[in-house]
Amino acid sequence: MFFDHLVLGASGEFLNVGDIIATLAVFIILMLLLKKFAWGPLMGIMQQREELIASEIVTAENSRQESQKMLEEQRTLLKEARTQAQEIVENAKKQGEVSRQDIISTARAEAGRMKDAAVQEIANEREKAISAVREEVVALSLLAASRVLEKEISEEDNRQLINETIAKAGEVQ
């Protein structure tokens, strides 16, 4: 009694073909339905994700290279700028040196010129003063001569006398 129900095909003494058909039908219908409504869309989305990730990786790689290139470029530019700046400073220093020299020499020249001008002025003034004094002396001499000598002398003597006096006066000066 007990073991009757443990034999293979315990559900009865018939070969239940109906169960075979039902199993196959249920399983195949389930598989088709799931393929249409569940696995298909799920596989689609997984595929899509795979593609997205692949493309993202490519994009990331590209942008990495891009940024690497840009970095390199920036580095070169920076180096260039630094060199340029150094050059500019150097130039400015040189320029400064040059203009310092320039200003100094200009100032020196100016000073020299002013000194010369002053010397010239002084000489002129002295000349003027001397000639004024000379004239004064001549006039005085004439006056003195005419007053002291009171004698008729020739024009020539007169002149000679005067010149001598002037010469003397010049030596005195």
Binding site: N16, V17, G18, D19, I21, A22, V26, I29
Partner: peptide, 15 residues
């Protein structure tokens, strides 16, 4: 054709 109705029902329930 013999059907075990319990099998048929449980297969459908599982599905």
């Amino acid at each position: 054709i013999w059907f075990n109705l319990s099998n048929v029902m449980m297969l459908i329930v599982a599905a």
